[in-house]
Design a protein around this nucleic acid. Structure first.
Length: 773
DNA sequence: CCCACACCTG
DNA sequence: CAGGTGTGGG
């Protein structure tokens, strides 16, 4: 696996990552952030330089190739100390240990590893160079770098030893070469046999499925493994151990991946069965028949034709065709492909409420929907849940498989997706949540994520937190001391859109039994036509390595955000098709919710644009700014109302709140600045201060919140600004600014001057309506 | 304890 | 604009 990690990159990446984490920082959960950082730091093998090289074979085997003198020094020191250990171990090192290892390894073939790993033998029998290389290499496998530094017997972290298969014991003593080779051969043939079997199984499975790029992976992957093993044997002795260790690890991973893939395919099968079941019954209830039976080709074609293909091509660079064996992301791709397939199969039925794209689809689907809404609803719901369950299993499996080095449990119950217990694992919990935040919601959140909000059923995310400064005005009961109650919302183009009207209470009428957003999951790169091209970094997404994931993740949030740019108005309509049962995304709770960083998803969901924005887009920012003209202190509930196309979680809420906080900051700074300036200019009475549209103060503000000046700022804002300015003026004149908290009083006043935000702002595509050309 | 907030910093 | 921090209210 090519790895372009180097110290600088890592450093930069860590830096950016910090930022990213910070962005996602949940207010009040600094601890988590710090914990994650700590863990990350420990995971970043900054001291292990990394040559490129998949399973380093010939290149840099003799240590001299490592131009890292610092490391060598360290190692020398360590070796010095280690020598003393070695002396103690001596009697047991060499053949004795090796034969022991061999015994245990052979005997336990198929069992779980005892934790007695090849690297353990390394330090006793091998040279320091091996140690070093094993270290730098194992670090690629996410071993803690600290292992490299620990002198003496090398104790591999449990994480690396808990892959499914037992580790073939590495043997490095020259006196054991012969037995080693025979053992190796045995192992290889064993491996080969198993691979063959897996291949056959794959083929058999594949026959009932539509062909997909992933299904070829097993075959090629096996060949790859075999070839690598063959190459391994030609290695110089010194490298032998280390390489073997590495390769055996890779084998393990590949094996694991194969298993996961099998599971995935099982899931796929189940999905299809469910699907077929559904159609049997469903079609019997539907008078007219559709021609949506060519799903096989259809889905595959479309999978190929969308962004996925690009990704595959990317990955192909290092994986040839054995993508599914080598690439974690591909599993998720596959999972998504399943969804996609599902979507396409049901595509005809999709209720596309997009007003723009509506016309092309002749409205002949209505009948079906009606039928579905009829007697079959119960069944549909059941099927839906089962489907959801199946999908969840797939996702959970994959997630588990790759979020933790531990072997994913083979089978989960329908609701087993809840993380068993918070583990100290770097990947679990927080990160997983975020993981889900990104990937899952696109197709799956629509199962229930939105419905709660839209139907008024509180979701776990709904906040009922206390309101800032003063009691939130939840209505037109604004009682301003200095100003008359704010006029009704006004704007030239402020007419509640029909969509807006239906947002709050979309009738649970005819719904397709399958959540429609699932089907409509847009797999094509939504950025394509919308000016937010994937950054150059996107092309680095070739390595499945976690480090790569980490690297890619940095821009993800931005990417995610940019997905919304120009898109928020196009898909939000699907919101009107939530299912009625908000609990359907239950099993996704694992990956839903909360934030964290987006690392895991960088590699997995670069194109996860969908109905509900996972992040806040530039357009959202713009909208927020415009909203600031009406409300300076929006409650989070209000924000949820007005950013209904965003999947809210604590992070999003916090970010929005932060935005407004920043807006206020700027606002008040300007106020203070201009107030002081007025005082300096000799203004004596607050009455002299007015804020008109030509006022400098206003221009400054407008420049900030309405840079393009394409929004007509409500007069009310001018009034509020004027009041604020005068408040500041008076306070300063009165010398209150000596009090450290002198602004608080002003804030208290200003926060009462919020007006109602026009309804249009609730429409996700309000910008189009709001902005004058 | 969580959250919103202001403040400061980059 | 975001990150971090301290504060204060619930």
């Amino acid at each position: 696996m090519p790895d372009h990690d180097n110290a600088t990159l890592l450093a930069r990446q860590t830096k950016r990552r910090r930022v990213d984490i910070g962005v996602k920082r949940t207010v009040g959960s600094v601890i988590f952030t710090r914990a994650r950082e700590t863990l990350l730091d420990r995971m970043n093998p900054t001291h292990c330089s990394d040559q490129d090289g998949d399973c380093p074979l010939v290149g840099h085997g003799h240590g001299s190739a490592n131009g890292d003198g610092e490391k060598s020094n360290v190692l020398r020191k360590l070796l010095k100390r280690a020598n003393s250990y070695e002396d103690a171990i001596m009697p047991f090192s060499g053949a004795t240990i090796i034969s022991q290892l061999l015994k245990s390894s052979i005997g336990k073939n198929g069992g779980s590893d005892s934790g007695f790993q090849g690297s353990g033998a390394l330090s006793s029998g091998g040279s320091e160079i091996q140690n070093e290389d094993a270290c730098s290499n194992s670090s690629r496998d996410q071993d803690s770098p600290s292992d490299c530094l620990s002198p003496g017997p090398h104790h591999p972290p449990p994480s690396s030893s808990s892959f499914g298969r037992p580790q073939p014991t590495s043997n490095h003593s020259s006196s054991q070469t012969l037995s080693l080779s025979t053992f190796d051969l045995d192992r290889l043939s064993d491996e080969h046999l198993r691979a063959k079997r897996a291949r056959v199984e794959n083929i058999i499975r594949g026959m009932s499925h539509s062909p997909s790029p992933g299904s070829r992976g097993g075959v090629v992957g096996v060949a790859e493994v075999y070839r690598e093993n063959k190459r391994k044997q030609r290695l110089p002795q010194q490298q032998h151990s280390f390489t073997q260790l590495v390769c055996s690890r890779q084998e393990q991973r590949q094996e694991e991946r194969r298993q996961l893939k099998l599971q995935l395919e099982d899931m796929q099968k189940q999905l299809r069965q469910l699907q077929e079941k559904f159609y049997q019954i469903y079609d019997s209830e539907t008078e007219e028949e559709e021609e949506n039976e060519e799903d096989g080709n259809l889905s595959e074609d479309s999978i190929r034709s969308d962004g996925l293909e690009e990704r595959h091509r990317d990955r192909g660079r290092h994986g040839h065709d054995d993508l599914s064996d080598l690439d974690p992301g591909l599993f998720l791709d596959r999972a998504r492909a399943l969804l996609r397939e599902q979507a396409l199969i049901d595509g005809d039925l999709e209720e596309d409420t997009d007003s723009r794209g509506e016309e092309e689809r002749s409205g002949d689907r209505g009948m079906k929907r009606r039928a579905a809404a009829g007697g079959g609803r119960q069944l549909a719901e059941t099927l839906k849940q089962e489907l959801n369950c199946a999908v969840s299993q797939v996702v959970d499996t994959v997630v588990k498989g790759f979020s933790s080095p531990k072997q994913a449990a083979a089978h989960h119950g329908c609701h087993s997706s809840t993380p068993a217990a918070p583990t100290p694992n770097y990947h679990s919990n927080q990160r997983l949540h975020c993981f889900g935040d990104v990937i899952v919601p696109s197709p799956l959140d629509s199962f229930g994520g939105l419905s709660g909000r839209l139907s008024g059923v509180p979701t776990p995310n709904d906040q009922t937190e206390a309101l800032p400064l003063v009691v939130r005005k939840n209505g037109p009961d604004n009682t301003s001391h200095t100003l008359p109650p704010p006029p009704p919302p006004h704007h030239p183009s402020l007419h509640p859109s029909p969509l807006t009207a239906s947002l709050g209470f979309s009738p649970p009428s005819f719904r397709h039994p399958f959540p429609l957003p699932l089907m409509g999951y847009p797999f094509q790169n939504p950025l394509g036509s919308h000016g937010y091209p994937p950054g150059p970094k996107d092309h680095h997404q070739s390595s499945p390595d976690s480090m790569d994931i980490t690297r890619e993740a940095v821009s993800l949030r931005t990417k995610m955000a940019s997905l919304g740019g120009g898109h928020m108005g196009h898909h939000h309509h699907r919101q009107s098709s939530p299912n009625q049962h908000g609990s359907e995304s239950l099993s996704l709770s694992l990956i839903k919710s909360e934030c964290g960083d987006l690392q895991d998803m960088a590699d997995i969901s670069p194109y996860s644009g969908s109905t509900i924005q996972e992040g806040l887009s530039p357009n959202h920012l713009k909208k927020a700014k415009l909203m600031f003209f009406y409300t300076r202190y929006p409650s989070s509930n209000m924000l949820k109302m007005f950013f209904s196309d965003v999947k809210f979680n604590r992070c999003i809420t916090s970010q929005l709140i932060k935005w407004f906080s920043n807006f206020r900051e700027f606002y008040y700074i300007q106020m203070e600045k201009f107030a002081r300036q007025a005082i300096n200019d000799g203004v004596t009475g607050a009455e002299e201060l007015t804020v008109g549209r030509d006022a400098e103060l206003f221009r400054a503000l407008n420049m900030h919140y309405n840079k393009a000046n394409d929004f007509e700022v409500p007069d009310r804002f001018l009034e509020v600004a004027q009041v604020t300015l005068r408040e500041f003026f008076n306070a300063i004149v009165a010398g209150k600014d000596a009090d450290p908290s002198w602004k608080k009083a002003i804030y208290k006043v200003i926060c009462k001057l919020d007006s109602e935000v026009p309804e249009v702002f609730k429409s996700p595509n309000c910008l189009q309506e709001l902005l004058r050309d």
